[in-house]
Design a protein around this nucleic acid. Structure first.
Lengths: 214, 214
DNA sequence: ATCTTCTTGTGAAGCCTTTCACAAGCCAGT
DNA sequence: ACTGGCTTGTGAAAGGCTTCACAAGAAGAT
């Protein structure tokens, strides 16, 4: 593989560019400039070009980038050419909400199994996804080739869940439990924390050092 | 107000330290060192001290920080001494899941109203929160002194919602719609984007430049 | 063919964040 | 009161990310 160290922020921006390119494709646009991408994603033209230049040169001077080509390139860079198999652990309110979330399937993340401790939920179908008992996790995850897991358990259960998932061979974890998780070297985690974001918002509002951007 | 520019990352870390301090309080710990805070939150002791030093000096050399005092200090810094009044716009799956989410209320974010376009939902109670039609947004938000809003609408409706909220005097927005939002100067936004996080995970897994941390 | 206009790709500069390293200071034991 | 062992607070150094600025190159008009 190529990759020197790519920064967190670069990856996030690439993902945003990709979303924009998809909109542009839908609008039948053929070419787009770094300036336009920048304007629409809240960054600068130079930043867009720098981000892309890390991976090669995909534009044409004097013209811009081919929407179609850049879209494919970004999908390739982000590893979105394949369909990722995802398991959900914790079929509570948030977990269930995620199962019904179109965006996931549309973007190539296929939830193939859910797990929960609640006997009432086990065996049921949530949005077409079967709920298994935790004791089946290792087997089901291994057999179905699950690579990514979403943890939506209560915080106390999250770290134990990580252990189970690691043993079953999961390599990526998206964590909704409001705790930091410790994982082995080969596993990547990202935590989405609503309370933390609200607290950051609270800080911004309290200190009035605002100046908004999403 | 004091504050020079405080970085995004510093605020996030402060929020994590605070969560840890609450755990420590529950465990009856009285004193904690920067080293311990660092270990438990995945950063370095120097970083913890630098983060805190921006706001003053709260520790005692040779001893550490008073858990209780630091907890209160961080709550003050983050603006969490008050109860924030929150409105939810979009009572779909994710919105509803958030209403049932303990963490919010526990941390001082009080959801006082929900809004939706769906006539079947309007008038109903979701986890004790009344659902209003969008046409009542301006009035209800103003009257109830709502300062923060959570947008959980479909992406197409998100930007329009921002306009309504701004007019009604909301100053902070937590956005769950997968689109970048444009807001006026006085408003702060943060976007939580599941698909984007999964794509970042996909990138990490594809390029194998891992090395996990939550 | 040449000129004008536009836009990329990229070294270099600037800015911001993190890490280092150590003096200052607290506590407990003697 | 002094000593030894820790731990903070903080300038200075290092490292990383973003912005600048401009040469190189493409397209279209003349």
């Amino acid at each position: 593989m190529t990759t020197r160290r790519i920064s967190e922020s670069t990856v996030r921006r690439l993902s945003r560019y990709l979303r924009l390119l998809r909109d542009l494709t839908a609008q039948r646009a053929e070419v787009v400039s770094s300036q336009e991408l920048a304007d629409r994603s809240g960054t600068t033209a130079a930043q867009v070009r720098k981000d892309l230049s890390v991976f090669g040169s995909f534009g044409q001077r004097g013209r811009g980038y081919s929407v179609q080509e850049l879209e494919r390139t970004l999908e390739h860079i982000l590893g979105l050419e394949k369909q990722w198999r995802v398991a959900l652990v914790g079929a509570g309110k948030i977990g269930t909400a995620l199962l019904g979330y179109r965006e996931l399937a549309d973007r190539g993340f296929d939830v193939v199994a859910a797990f929960d401790t609640d006997v009432d939920k086990i065996g049921s179908d949530l949005f077409g996804v079967r709920v298994f008992p935790m004791s089946d996790l290792n087997e089901v995850v291994s057999n179905r080739g699950v690579e990514v897991a979403i943890i939506a358990t209560p915080p106390e259960a999250a770290q134990d869940t990580v252990r189970l998932l690691e043993q079953a061979g999961v390599r990526g974890i998206l964590n909704f439990a409001p705790v930091g998780l410790t994982v082995s070297e080969e596993v990547s985690v990202r935590t989405m924390d609503v309370a933390l974001e609200l607290e950051a918002l609270s800080f911004a509002l309290s200190s009035r050092t605002n100046g908004g951007r999403a």
